[in-house]
Design a protein around this nucleic acid. Sequence first.
DNA 1: GTGATTTCTTCAACTACTTTAATTTTTTTG
DNA 2: CAAAAAAATTAAAGTAGTTGAAGAAATCAC
Lengths: 193, 193
Amino acid sequence: MEFDLLLKNIARHVQLDQTEIGFFTSLLEKKKMKKKEFLLKYGEICKTENFIVKGCLRVYAVDANGFEHIVMFGIEGWWVSDLLSLWTNSPTTYYIDALEDTELLQISKSNLDALYERVPKFERFFRIILQNAYSAQQLRINQNLSFTAEQRYLNFIEKYPSFAQRIPQKQISAYLGMTPVFLSMLRKKLSKK
Amino acid sequence: MEFDLLLKNIARHVQLDQTEIGFFTSLLEKKKMKKKEFLLKYGEICKTENFIVKGCLRVYAVDANGFEHIVMFGIEGWWVSDLLSLWTNSPTTYYIDALEDTELLQISKSNLDALYERVPKFERFFRIILQNAYSAQQLRINQNLSFTAEQRYLNFIEKYPSFAQRIPQKQISAYLGMTPVFLSMLRKKLSKK
DNA sequence: GTGATTTCTTCAACTACTTTAATTTTTTTG
DNA sequence: CAAAAAAATTAAAGTAGTTGAAGAAATCAC
């Protein structure tokens, strides 16, 4: 059923009994989003952690010239949020919207605190999620410093083949830090090899 | 005395009594490093969290062409480590060395676990440190995507004026993702304005 | 303190990537 | 399904940042 993917995900890191599962799922809210709908806009305060059951989200910032830069994508099985805004109850500087029709399971900050209180194992689970996110970010910083645009693209399609197929090139270029035009040129060049 | 800076730092986030302070400090080891000495080398497993009492460290990666790219600097009051290696007991892909003669207070992973067990407040403290690091990384990713080399440099000297003074330009350029030559040209251009 | 090494600067040639703009292809919407 | 909108492609001109090389300045090591 609807919690399957999430519970399977959690089970990879912590073991829960039926009561704990029941309590946890009682704290979740379902949300359906249409493509292009916003989950969070600049200046708002992020109130939830969001687990993607189906679909695809992007977290992005808009720079001084109006260009969008994508901080992260998320698909089925990923948690997406603005953690800084959530943690500190401060206005976000990002936007989050849906690249496809999307279904979420949301847990609010207050319910999350209640969950940690009652089932401390979840602290461990979310700490692991955070650690993975931290490590991934560090790797991305390093690769943005050391890779050319071509290397970043090749690395991306190797690492996230499923993203590469379903996400429009324009969005991928905004994630990789190059123009859509240049990405198109790269792809042409690479296809000839 | 020698723990002052660290304790003052901790006091900004959690309140400790004398017993807790005593237990905590008993878990720390002092380490002195000469300039250019390594704290961690590629392939080793990072065993400690390191608090800088005095001096300056850099965490860097070496790319396929032998160029160094700096992941982070740390000065007095900062925690520096390879968290991924520490958490997962896996070989690091980074180097950490001293840009100046440096004094550290180190806590090993096992002592850290003991500390969390006995004084759970420290979980909160290190969680806050991690949250700050995560947020800073996300900001850096975003700025690397949206800023020009000149904007990145201006942002750096505004945000970390103390770093800009004591760290050689060559290192700063390796942090900002540009060549030392180009940074030199930027500085000349900016000084003329 | 002096010679050796490393860092910083300057300049000119080069290249990776951007910009603009026009055309084609794909996707969206009523 | 047709019209409109958005995304992708192509080409040409432009620019931000790199490379290599050589000299000056600063730092290191004995």
